[in-house]
């Protein structure tokens, strides 16, 4: 979640072994998010992290990390207010590699290039559409639910990966509900990478060193995972 410490935290995450970083642009009513990210968004908004400030945070992060892909993750209302094209242009100018807009399904705003999400409930037809329109990789929502840690890896991920493989040749990264190194490793034996939000955010709240260590624990688990067939 964007905040004053984001550039430093991003650097720590990259040192820990993150290949790509999502930067949350907070929204007041984040429907896809569980309590941890919702509260983080509330705090960020209370600190004044509006669209302009978030774009500045993105640029400052890019200055520290010239190579790491950086992806703003947000909700439609921010783009509606800022201007959809203008947001995409300004984010790119500030160093964004792509965008994730959680509440903008693949059939809305086809012209806005972004990373598409598919879910266990998605039909094959929708997975194909998302695969055609996505920007670089496809985000697999591992479970039917909102963001946040779960006890085990979602059993629906395997089926989703299988369906997505037939729809696209692009890399598949799995997110939602992944928090432990064991879950990350299990997910990485199915998909091509994992996305961790809630638990990374909780680690970041304990400071850059804690975030670096947490990401390193995930990195180690992923490196030990068998490469998906």
């Amino acid at each position: 979640m964007c905040g004053p410490d984001t550039p430093e935290l991003a650097e720590a995450a990259a040192e820990g072994g993150a290949d790509l970083l999502e930067l949350g642009f907070p929204f007041s009513d984040p429907l896809a998010d569980g309590p941890v990210i919702r509260r983080a968004a509330e705090r960020a908004l209370a600190q004044g992290m509006r669209t302009g400030a978030c774009l500045e945070t993105l640029a400052a992060t890019r200055a520290r990390l010239p190579e790491t892909p950086l992806v703003p993750m947000t909700y439609s209302s921010l783009l509606e207010a800022y201007g959809w094209e203008r947001f995409a242009d300004d984010a790119r100018a500030a160093g964004a590699t792509s965008l994730i807009i959680v509440d903008l399904p693949a059939d809305e705003r086809a012209d806005l290039r972004r990373i598409q999400l598919v879910a266990p409930t998605s039909t094959d037809k929708r997975i194909r559409l998302a695969g055609e329109r996505t920007d670089g990789w496809l985000y697999l929502v591992t479970l039917t639910g909102t963001t946040g840690a779960r006890d085990g890896l979602s059993p629906t991920l395997a089926g989703l990966v299988e369906r997505a493989r037939t729809a696209t040749k692009l890399p598949l990264y799995a997110g939602f509900g992944i928090s432990t190194p064991e879950q990350a490793r299990a997910a990485a034996e199915l998909a091509d990478g994992v996305v961790v939000g809630t638990s990374a955010l909780e680690a970041a709240e304990r400071g850059p060193a804690a975030l670096r260590d947490y990401v390193k624990s995930l990195r180690t688990a992923l490196d030990a995972a068998a490469v998906p067939a």
Binding site: A32, E108, V118, A119, R126, A130, V141
Partner: peptide
């Protein structure tokens, strides 16, 4: 109008 919801809900 429209549909601005997470993908999970679209099939429903």
């Amino acid at each position: 109008g429209g549909r601005f919801v997470p993908e999970t809900l679209i099939p429903a």
